[in-house]
Structures are given as structure tokens and as C-alpha cells.
């Protein structure tokens, strides 16, 4: 019987393999942890496969994690967007409050020189016919606001005076740019006296300065003189932008008021003025 035929016999083959394994084990046992060549070959051949499988699995794992993270991130993003929205709103409100607080502080500081009690008020409306004429403020007689109290902006520049009607929590302010306004003023440099009247278009002019007078300097600052007993002296009003004496017996002195109607958010009512009168 040839060897090949013997190999084809299953019992013989089983016996051979059984002994092969026994020999393998018996040669391996004395070697301890040392590897046989066959083991090394098997390991060398298949370890890259294992590495690939593990890498592949790790890739799938990380991809899955990324996908799940993506879903989580989407939710988180939605939540954060909502939070950002509310925080932005809150920030805006707080910024507004801070701005108002700072403005009020600035207002009080700017008007401290007047030694008057300052009632801070907010402009809540303007004259619908001509916004250079009057403004509505959120203070009324409940806040001890009466008519003819000087009103300044937060920089301490003259804005106008309170006027009727004065309700419990609202009052009207006649602006110095109104034609109905009249403020006794004086120029800072040459002490030119006059009455400041609004032109109804955002500017004012000083009345009753004789054309032959050499008073009046272009660019000079105008402030209240206190002669009208409504406005205390020394409140800044504006600056002379042009002087002309061509028509009539009085000069036409145009004044640009310092207060800016568009930034007229917070104003100050000077209350003590009333008690001094």
C-alpha cells in the first residue's frame, strides 16, 4: 500500500494528525512561551487580517459614534440656538437698562452744577404735527412735575420747558426749537442778551438784538441768562451758526441747539427751579 493511499484512509489520517498534534505539543511544552515556526507563520499570516478587522470595527464604531453625536449635536444646536435667542434678548434688555442707568447717572452728574433736584424722565412721544415743537414725557404731577420747569438732555443742554397739560404721569415739554418757545439767553463771550425762539425746523434764533450792535460772534456759545425766571442761568443752549443784519432793525442770529432731538431719550426736569421763584 503506497503512502498516498494510506493518507486517503481516514483512520490513518486521523492517527497521523493526532500524533502530529501530540508531537507539536510535546515540542512546544519544553519551549515554554517560545513560539514554534508554524505558530509564527500562522500568526504572521493572519495578524494583518485581525488588525484590519479591528481597525474596520473601530472605524465603524467611531463612525456610529459620530453619527449619534451628530444627532445629539443637532439637538444641542437647537437648544443652544434657543438659548442664544433668549440670551440675546436678555442682553438687549440689560444693555438697554444699563444704558438708561448710565444715562441717568450721567444726567445727574452733568446737572449737578445747577444744584437742583433732577427728575429723570423719558420721552415717550413727540408732537405729531411738528416734532420740533413738543415732546411728551413720562412724568406728571404725581412726580411733582408742574408747568414751566426747565428740561435738559443728559448732557445738560437745554431742551425746553414743561407745559400744560400735565397729567398724573405724563407732561408736555415745549422744545426750544418750537416757535412758541422763548428763552432768555446770553452769549458766553460778549454777553449779548436776547430771547431765543425756535424756528420750528430744528434751529433757533435770537430775537431783539439791535442790528447796529456789534455784539454777537459767530460760533459763540449761548446759554440761559436766567432773566426770564423760568430757566436758571448757565444752562448751555447752543452755538451761533450765522449772524445777519440785512433786514430790519434787529439782527438775525441763527443758533444751532446742542440737544439732538433724535437722541432725546432721557431728559432731566429741573425741579428746584420752582421753589426758587
Amino acid at each position: 500500500m503506497s503512502f498516498l493511499r494510506l493518507v486517503k484512509n481516514k483512520y490513518f489520517l486521523a492517527g497521523i494528525l493526532f500524533f502530529f498534534h501530540l508531537i507539536l505539543i510535546s515540542t512546544q511544552v519544553p519551549l515554554g512561551s517560545k513560539q514554534t515556526l508554524l505558530e509564527k507563520i500562522g500568526f504572521q499570516l493572519f495578524s494583518p487580517v485581525q488588525k484590519t478587522v479591528v481597525s474596520g470595527l473601530n472605524f465603524i464604531k467611531s463612525s456610529y459614534e459620530e453619527i449619534t453625536n451628530l444627532a445629539f449635536l443637532r439637538q444641542e444646536n437647537q437648544r443652544l440656538k434657543k438659548e442664544v435667542f433668549f440670551l440675546t434678548q436678555e442682553k438687549q434688555i440689560l444693555t438697554q437698562k444699563l444704558r438708561l442707568y448710565r444715562a441717568e447717572k450721567e444726567l445727574t452728574e452733568n446737572l449737578a452744577f445747577l444744584r437742583l433736584t433732577v427728575i429723570p424722565a423719558r420721552v415717550i412721544g413727540f408732537d405729531t404735527a411738528n416734532f420740533y415743537r413738543t415732546a411728551i414725557i413720562n412724568r406728571g404731577y404725581e412726580d411733582q412735575v408742574v408747568k414751566n420747569l426747565p428740561v435738559c438732555d443728559k448732557q445738560g443742554n437745554l431742551v425746553g420747558r414743561t407745559a400744560e397739560p400735565v397729567s398724573a404721569h405724563e407732561a408736555k415739554v415745549v422744545l426750544i426749537t418750537s416757535e412758541e418757545s422763548g428763552v432768555a439767553v446770553a452769549s458766553v463771550t460778549d454777553k449779548m442778551l436776547g430771547i431765543l425762539v425756535g424756528d420750528g425746523q430744528g434751529k433757533c434764533y435770537i430775537k431783539y438784538v439791535i442790528a447796529s450792535s456789534n455784539l454777537g460772534i459767530q460760533g459763540d456759545e449761548i446759554e440761559t441768562s436766567g432773566l426770564d425766571r423760568v430757566f436758571p442761568p448757565g444752562i448751555k443752549v447752543g452755538r451761533i451758526i450765522s449772524i445777519s443784519s440785512e433786514k430790519g432793525m434787529f439782527k438775525k442770529i441763527l443758533v444751532q441747539p446742542y440737544f439732538n432731538l433724535r437722541n432725546l431719550e432721557l431728559i432731566a426736569i429741573l425741579k428746584e427751579n420752582l421753589s426758587e421763584r
Binding site: F18, H21, L24, I25, T36, L38, F43, F46, S47
Partner: peptide, 18 residues
């Protein structure tokens, strides 16, 4: 299969094969 398994286990080579 036994030899392959043993190649990847820290033990006696041929044990699983047997």
C-alpha cells in the same frame, strides 16, 4: 482551525488543534 486558533492564543501550539 486549531492551529490558527493556537497561533493567536498564548498557550501551547497544537492544543486546540488536538
Amino acid at each position: 482551525a486549531g492551529l490558527l486558533q493556537d497561533a493567536f492564543s498564548y498557550g501551547v501550539f497544537g492544543l486546540a488543534g488536538l
